[in-house]
Simulated scan of single mutants.
Amino acid sequence: MATILITGGTGLIGKELTKKLTNRGHVVNILSRNPKKNNEFRWSLKENFIDKDAFTNVSHIIHLAGAGIADKRWTNERKQELIDSRVKTASLLFNKVQEYKTPLKAFISASAIGYYGAITSNEIFTEEDDPENDFISKVCVKWENVALKFEHLDIPVTILRTGIVLTKSDGALQKMNTPLFLSSLGSGKQYMPWIHIDDLCALYIKAVEDKKFTGIFNAVAPEHQTNEIFTKTLATTLKKTLFPFNIPSFVLKTALGEMAYILLNGSRVSAKKVSKSYSFNFPDLQSALNNVYNGK
Results as ranks from 00 to 15, higher is better:
residue 92 L to I: 08
residue 20 K to F: 03
residue 158 T to G: 04
residue 208 V to M: 10
residue 91 S to G: 10
residue 58 V to C: 08
residue 250 F to Y: 14
residue 62 I to D: 02
residue 48 N to A: 12
residue 237 T to P: 14
residue 34 N to G: 02
residue 193 P to L: 09
residue 179 P to R: 04
residue 253 K to T: 04
residue 71 D to C: 02
residue 99 E to N: 12
residue 104 L to E: 09
residue 94 F to I: 07
residue 159 I to N: 00
residue 153 L to K: 08
residue 283 P to K: 10
residue 28 V to M: 11
residue 163 G to V: 10
residue 164 I to Q: 06
residue 98 Q to N: 08
residue 111 S to L: 04
residue 177 N to P: 05
residue 237 T to H: 13
residue 37 K to Y: 11
residue 234 L to R: 05
residue 128 E to L: 12
residue 217 F to C: 11
residue 166 L to T: 09
residue 75 T to E: 02
residue 167 T to F: 09
residue 171 G to H: 02
residue 72 K to M: 02
residue 188 G to M: 01
residue 250 F to K: 11
residue 12 L to P: 00
residue 238 L to Q: 13
residue 183 S to L: 07
residue 265 N to E: 14
residue 124 I to H: 03
residue 95 N to A: 12
residue 46 K to P: 01
residue 151 E to A: 10
residue 56 T to C: 09
residue 20 K to S: 09
residue 252 L to S: 00
residue 32 S to F: 02
residue 240 K to T: 11
residue 71 D to N: 11
residue 290 N to L: 14
residue 278 Y to N: 07
residue 143 W to V: 13
residue 116 Y to M: 10
residue 100 Y to L: 13
residue 156 P to G: 11
residue 265 N to P: 04
residue 88 K to Q: 15
residue 38 N to V: 12
residue 238 L to Y: 07
residue 53 D to I: 09
residue 134 D to W: 06
residue 258 E to K: 01
residue 179 P to G: 03
residue 89 T to F: 03
residue 122 N to W: 07
residue 114 G to R: 00
residue 234 L to M: 12
residue 43 W to H: 02
residue 198 D to H: 13
residue 171 G to T: 04
